[in-house]
Write a protein that binds this DNA or RNA. Structure first.
Length: 332
DNA sequence: AATTTCCCCAACCGCGAAGTT
DNA sequence: TAACTTCGCGGTTGGGGAAAT
């Protein structure tokens, strides 16, 4: 069925609202309620379409709107709800009294999203974006140790362990190089690590995972078919499963990040909100689907131009391919 | 001081869902 | 049940102010 036009646009004003128009709208709604948005502008003496009036009222003129900066608690709530709900701005807004979906959406796109990117977190998947991240920059960042960064302790853990691991290997390499009379400039990482790609292991049954067999998996939220793979050396799940793998691969296993912010103590410890996420999940379909994004895809992850700009150099440092989605069922 | 670039956010657009006839 | 209307949502745009050159 074709879409009915929201109104007859001939002769109707568009663009910013004047104070006079605002007052007319407020006066009318205070007297009569908004009732039918389609006929409201006519009755209120406004040369606007009903849709424009509704938007102006709900996003700006409504008396219960809280304006001003977002508090840290509000920001945390937005981030966590977004990780569950995706771009369900209206649902997120319903959990933030006085905030509109439009306001939250704008705030996300202009502030939070950029901040997450700088922290190396994919704002769509809420997963670490270490494929594009200079680990040393995380650890030396002013964000390191801040409450903002503490929301993602796993990132720090992973960055720290990877960095120290590579640093150690780099030292080994330097010793080697010295012995060989060779010199490396500006090489932060062992070439072996530079080459490694960490990818989901396709069709690896979870019960075959060493993580389970050895009870080493401290990150139960990680998808069963997810494991690290040293791409330069390994070619299938058996390799990343430890069969025929090098000790370097094994070293990585316990360093898997925990992506389950909600089951983990990390979140509870850093955030005293006892939110009931089940109550904000209108339907099971409200999973954190990476909704329509303008992102282009590189290395299996979505990256927009400005995202790329937010990262430091790095495709040649580490390449990760990580699971895109969190499993919502685990939250319920 | 003038110009350009960047950034924010209010407002618009188009679509699908829900409601009504 | 189909046709139509209304509402609400999410994505996008563009005007205007701030910052940079």
């Amino acid at each position: 069925m074709g879409r009915a036009p929201c109104c007859d646009k001939n002769g109707l004003k568009k663009g910013p609202w004047t104070q006079e128009e605002d007052q007319k709208l407020i006066d009318y709604i205070q007297k009569h309620g908004y009732g039918n948005w389609r006929i409201l502008p006519k009755n209120a003496g406004l040369q606007r379409c009903g849709k424009s009036c509704r938007l102006r009222w709900t996003n700006y003129l409504r008396p219960d709107i809280k304006r001003g900066l977002f508090s840290f608690e509000e920001e945390e709530t937005i981030i966590h709800l977004h990780s569950i709900l995706g771009n369900k701005w209206s649902t997120i807004a319903s959990r933030l009294p006085g905030r509109t979906d439009n306001e939250i959406k704008n705030y996300w796109n202009t502030h939070i999203r950029k901040r997450l990117l700088k922290m190396g977190i994919d704002p769509v998947t809420h997963s670490p974006r270490l494929d594009l991240l200079d680990l040393s920059s995380i650890l030396s960042s002013p964000l390191y140790g801040s409450s903002q960064m503490n929301m993602y302790p796993e990132i720090l853990k992973l960055a720290s362990s990877l960095f120290s691991s590579s640093h150690q290997q780099n030292q080994d390499l330097n010793i080697c190089d010295q012995n060989n009379g060779q010199e490396h400039h500006n090489q932060s990482f062992n070439p072996q690590i530079q080459n490694q790609q960490i990818q989901p292991c396709v069709s690896m049954p979870f019960n075959q995972s060493r993580l389970v067999e050895s009870n080493l998996n401290p990150y139960p939220s990680i998808s069963p078919d997810f494991c690290f793979q040293q791409h330069s050396q390994l070619s299938d799940w058996q390799h990343c499963n430890g069969i025929g793998s090098s000790t370097k691969t094994e070293d990585f296993v316990p360093q898997l990040p925990c992506y389950n912010y909600y089951n983990s103590d990390c979140y509870a410890n850093n955030n005293n909100q006892n939110m009931s996420f089940s109550s904000v999940l209108p339907t099971p379909s409200s999973s954190p689907t990476p909704l329509n994004s303008n992102s282009t895809y590189k290395n299996g992850s979505s990256i927009t131009e400005d995202e790329t700009e937010s990262f430091v150099s790095s495709n040649n440092i580490l390449r990760f391919q990580i699971q895109d989605m969190l499993c919502v069922s685990e939250f319920l």
